[in-house]
Design a binder for these strands. Sequence first.
DNA 1: CGAACGTTTGAAAATCGTCAATGTCAGTGG
DNA 2: CCACTGACATTGACGATTTTCAAACGTTCG
Lengths: 240, 240
Amino acid sequence: MTAPAATPLSLRIRAAGEVPGDTVDSAGNLILSTQTVAALSAIAVPLDVKARTPVVRQGDEAEFVFLIRSGVIKAEHQLEDGRTQIVAFHWPGDLFGLADHDLYLNSADALTDCDLIRFSRPALKALFLTEPGLQGDFLVEAIAHLRLSQRHLLLVTHQRVAKRLAGFLIECSQKPECYDTQTGVLSLIMDRTDIAAYLNTTVESVSRMIGALEERKLITRVDARHVRLDLPGLKALLTR
Amino acid sequence: MTAPAATPLSLRIRAAGEVPGDTVDSAGNLILSTQTVAALSAIAVPLDVKARTPVVRQGDEAEFVFLIRSGVIKAEHQLEDGRTQIVAFHWPGDLFGLADHDLYLNSADALTDCDLIRFSRPALKALFLTEPGLQGDFLVEAIAHLRLSQRHLLLVTHQRVAKRLAGFLIECSQKPECYDTQTGVLSLIMDRTDIAAYLNTTVESVSRMIGALEERKLITRVDARHVRLDLPGLKALLTR
DNA sequence: CGAACGTTTGAAAATCGTCAATGTCAGTGG
DNA sequence: CCACTGACATTGACGATTTTCAAACGTTCG
């Protein structure tokens, strides 16, 4: 679960979604020049957080940007009306810490033990002046996030909870961290409440829908946190 | 059919949302250096489109990025299952033309007559090499769009259509292009179908909800496309 | 063991989508 | 000038999915 880190700091910035050829490696990570990595490393501070602990609070002064080396982070936004919407799950290689007016826009909590790296925003800004190439990398990242965000929107706007859930399971199955391609078993890192908050529904509906999908033989429950997926079946459900 | 262009090209790039002081002017537009504007102008091509005409099609090769000088654009995404979700309305100063794998991710249609400027993507990329500052401006823009996108998500995930509609009206009231602060009258430039597609509901529900809001005296219909808003009341509804 | 938490299940109410019909308005052509 | 047409908007009735409220069930952990 922890990064091997052959070099003192291996910075894997995942370009969520896909980008044209020459900016990412085979694993979908940005290719950073040696000097860029060196410059970034100089201002990088490793930070380990345990599962179920907050990393940043919505509304706090945004001092840092975070990069995930291992673990999963949930980003949630509290509305004025008391609702809490999960805006994204962040995976290894993701950057997080979106800010507006120098305040964090969302709260971020560790779902699992996490191995993070944090960069001071001012220091990053300064780096941009001396390392122009770095800006481009962050631009690619920002646009990738934009696509991800849109994908989440499209997921959440499916009218039937069944479709939203199917889409969510498919999404998770694309994360090597929690899907075993061999057995077809998906490990759910988050609890029902989090799934509900991400899919914009209720715990009860999530629970019922899991049951419904199981009856339709699209998934098989191993236990509450482990399900075997019929990916083709789920994808068919989604496009129907 | 051609741009009026008082100056050869006045490039207003709106930093959607808000950004810290020194990168935007009082109107919320990015401050571009003279040489940046000159460089951009060199590759800028004015383009005028009439209301209700397509600008780009989802899936087409993404050759350009567009900047809106005047008019309103709707960006919509066709799902495999036939659903069409409006992903954003773009206003003057906005950039649009999000791409993935060099293909447009969404279709864009002009809602009103539009005065656009288009930049060739390869030319832009080339510019980034010679004008490092420009990349930063686009980074700011991308992040601003990210915030906007999240706001749309939060809007759409309100459970009650009433709340979504209220949020939408408030959002529109922040566009000087369609809200008259003096009279409090909002001009809806999009039809009910588009509003429904943006709010993830149906034409009928939108229509009914407008009626419901009117009964609750939160809005007054002048005609189908013009409503007087009780902004405080609408905001109260949203946070309840 | 018991408490706390997460998950599941049940039953009832409510919102919303669907289908269908009607209404309104602008533009067209006789 | 008026009927006609088509696009858009509204209204009604119905059914269905989903939320809500409650309670039971299982696990984990002190």
